[in-house]
Design a protein around this nucleic acid. Structure first.
Lengths: 201, 201
DNA sequence: ATGATTCCTGACCTGTCGGTCAGGATGTCA
DNA sequence: TGACATCCTGACCGACAGGTCAGGAATCAT
């Protein structure tokens, strides 16, 4: 793990690209992308607006980076589920749910931003398309689990899929880093509710 | 029902407050509140920007009206559940879920807007506070249902509440008016999944 | 015909937005 | 002591934001 290497830099010390990006994503989530000005971001970092543009080419670029981060990891979860042909669809679905929760928690700021994208630019539209592709594949996984008899068939599979991953995505509304629950607890709570139900039996 | 009365008006015919409000909420949801300019709204209605201000005092007022609409109906659902002391907490919780779904579907634009508020103005902060109060009461209802033994007690009640109503709220992400499912179908699908589980038994 | 009422336009104002640019400050390396 | 790399400031730009205002246009009641 090359984790938190200080990485000896030359020249005048100060902020770098990733510091700006992290702060930007955090602000975008707190206030919304459009409600956040580059001036706000500069103030948050204790710099002038023009200093920001030394590190990053544009506001849209910051958003793009965040969306790529989120989509990349979500796609990876799906690739894994797709490659794993040795298990039942039901097992792979459970893994996909757990993986999605893990990505959401580990990359909370980026994923939260992704979930709020409205399609106001080409980059946002492209992100929506990529997200839609992921959702479609998850829906197929659900349909396969229904077809193999693991899930109830009195509900339309696509509806099941929307409710299931709607629940997962709703975590972004309240989960906070260092909060009460870790990714594992959240994942098992969701699978407990969604697959086994809340009612006592 | 005074439903869709034409309401004979005097003076030059044209748009009115509610027409502007409806269009505004729709646009706010499509693009986001901050990304929507009053010019956009004017164009959508086929008017000039200044004409808008004949019907409505400000952009913020439009948002306020929408938030009040959503919060009013959601509060009503809760008042009903609170008054109904003759039933178990579990039964009242189920009613609250169904009622929330019905409000969400019947007032989809306003509720969607409420769910996206970030707290960027006093009005938004106040709406967040009112929403929080509602969420807290729903969490109490869940806790009561757990205490009375109707719901599983191996998950923290507040977590159950967040997952349950997170699922309900996630409907706003994809449900469309005149879509495939009506409020009743959605409510029963959610209760089926959340209370009885998706797994075949 | 004539007010009264209602709706709408076009020109305009102030502030802020994302972004640029020339140059100065502050560090590392030789 | 430089040369070099990096980071940062302050003044500035055109575009567009929310909003105002004076007056014109369309309809109703009399």
């Amino acid at each position: 793990m090359t984790g938190a290497r200080p990485a000896p830099r030359r020249g005048r010390p100060g902020h770098d690209q990733t510091a700006v990006l992290r702060a930007a994503i955090e602000l975008f989530n707190r206030q919304g992308y459009d409600a956040t000005s580059m001036g706000d971001l500069a103030a948050e970092l204790g710099l002038t607006k023009s200093a920001i543009y030394h590190h990053v080419p544009s506001k849209a670029h910051l958003l793009q980076e965040a969306l790529d981060e989120a989509l990349g990891h979500l796609s990876a979860v799906l690739d894994e589920a797709r490659r794993d042909t040795g298990r039942t669809a039901y097992e792979r679905l459970r893994s996909a749910v757990e993986g999605s929760v893990r990505v959401l928690v580990d990359h909370l700021p980026a994923v939260t931003l992704l979930l709020r994208v409205r399609g106001n630019s080409d980059a946002e539209l492209e992100a929506l398309r990529r997200r839609r592709r992921i959702d479609d594949e998850l829906a197929e996984l659900v349909a396969a689990a229904v077809a193999e008899g693991a899930l109830r068939d009195d509900l339309p599979p696509d509806l099941i899929s929307r409710l299931l991953f709607g629940t997962v995505n709703s975590l972004a509304e309240w989960v906070r880093p260092q909060g009460r629950y870790d990714a594992g607890e959240l994942a098992s709570a969701i699978t407990a509710m969604a697959f086994d139900g809340l009612a006592r039996r």
